[in-house]
Nucleic acid binder design. Structure first.
Length: 369
RNA sequence: GGGGAGGUGGCGGAGCGGUCAAUCGCAGCAGACUGUAAAUCUGCCGCCCUAGCGGCUACGGAGGUUCGAACCCUCCCCUCCCCA
């Protein structure tokens, strides 16, 4: 897919850099890992250091020194995760800042304005991520509000685009709509229909991985993704585990983001080709092997489990860095395998088709990529 | 030599007659984490087990007072501080 700051191979995984930094990483680390796009957060950057300040400093890319694509989440997730600190109403969501207790109103319009000031490449519309479990009524009312917010957000976005000259740093900013509807198939279907009719550059599936079962999550992903336009990226927000990436890519998802690889790295859990590995476990105290012998990341090429465990136990910051490097490498490597598998599957499909169209072709040799 | 303070679970440190196997912190052990209020959070952490308002041994040592002692008394051992 193409953005104002470059092309992204899909399916893509976007590391989360809420406050304009992927925790424990420098941008140089991200470059070396092959990261093509990161996520930042409207709510957090609005509270600190402030959207106007970032705009004055030339926009997010300039401010944080990262010239590749950035997607900004709208703060919709904070409506969910900071539920105890906010109230939702028709106008928007009123938050009490976790930093100083001050009150702030985030509306569909202000979420657009803030993201325009930030100058991200992809701006997300403000939505309400409904909790799980939720009653049908609750999910329906929430979805209806999300749809009204989506119209307002889109209107504001298009209005800003009309301004000439464009007053902010990224005139090529795109805006994604978000499908909600909880775990109710008809609500999801209605959400797709309505959100598509509003029209966005692309669409995301939100409100998943909030407590529902995996079959529910995969089911909603499959039925929803299948109704979204195939010529635009389909983004599954906040997902997921390595297995989720594969399961959901197989169901048509093109973009993922998740805090798991980075947060779990800081908490001592590594994703490896053998499964999860808790580097703080005593069993690794004398283990000279790398975390994942089949991994080619910087951490695995240079350091032992014993050393990584020591760094973690000792509270060394480097533990977070090395663990994060590994987990992000694992995630990006998984995505690259997924992309290969898709190409392979498409080639196989084409081959089968051509064998039917041109039956006189010579007999098979072993199929090779 | 004189005066004072104190010895509690791996460490630090509460407790000062019963509800104390003993607050809490650290260390240790294990687990969780899905659009990041997270380098966070949760559980376990004397020994035994059928894991429980269970059994056993415990608050420097030995006696004692008491229905009952980590807490009170006596003696002993050992630390630390001040003055000579």
């Amino acid at each position: 897919m193409r953005t104002a700051h470059g092309v992204i191979d899909t399916p893509a995984f976007m590391p989360v850099g809420t406050q304009g930094a992927v925790k424990a990483m420098t941008h140089r680390d991200l470059d070396a890992l092959g990261v093509q796009i990161i996520l930042a957060n409207t709510y957090h950057l609005y509270l600190r250091p402030g959207a106007d300040r970032i705009a004055r400093l030339g926009g997010l890319h300039s401010f944080i020194g990262w010239d590749k694509p950035v997607l900004t989440d709208s703060g919709g997730y904070q409506v969910f995760s900071l539920a105890a600190r906010r109230t939702v109403h028709e106008e928007g969501a009123t938050f009490r800042s976790h930093l100083d207790g001050s009150e702030h109103l985030l509306t569909p319009e202000s979420a657009v304005d803030i993201q325009a000031r930030l100058g991200s490449d992809i701006s997300m519309v403000l939505d309400e991520c409904v909790e799980y479990p939720a009653t049908y009524e609750r999910a329906r009312e929430s979805l209806e509000r999300t749809l009204r917010w989506a119209r307002r957000g889109r209107d504001r976005f298009l209005a800003l685009k009309q301004e000439a000259p464009y007053p902010f740093s990224n005139p090529g900013q795109a805006q994604f709509g978000i499908i909600q509807g909880g775990t109710f198939p008809d609500l999801r279907r209605a959400s797709v229909e309505e959100t598509l009719s509003i029209g966005f550059e692309a669409f995301a599936i939100g409100g998943l991985a909030v407590g529902e079962s995996l079959p529910e999550m995969y089911g909603v992903t499959e039925s929803t993704a299948s109704r979204l336009p195939v010529d635009r990226p389909r983004y599954l927000m906040g997902v997921g585990t390595p297995v989720d990436l594969i399961e959901c890519a197989a169901r048509g998802i093109d973009m993922f983001d998740c805090v798991l690889p980075t947060r779990n790295a800081r908490n001592g859990q590594l994703f490896t080709s053998e499964g999860r590995l808790n580097i703080k476990n005593a069993e690794f105290a004398d283990d000279p092997r790398p975390p994942d012998p089949s991994c080619s990341c910087y951490t695995c090429r240079h350091f032992s489990r014993a050393y990584l465990r020591h760094l973690f136990q000792a509270g060394e910051m480097t533990a977070a860095t090395l663990n994060t490097l590994h987990n992000l490498h694992f995630y990006l490597d998984t995505m690259s395998r997924i992309r290969e598998a898709i190409v392979f599957a498409q080639l196989e499909e084409l081959r089968q088709r051509f064998r039917r169209i041109f039956p006189a072709q010579p007999a098979d040799s072993a199929f090779r990529r």
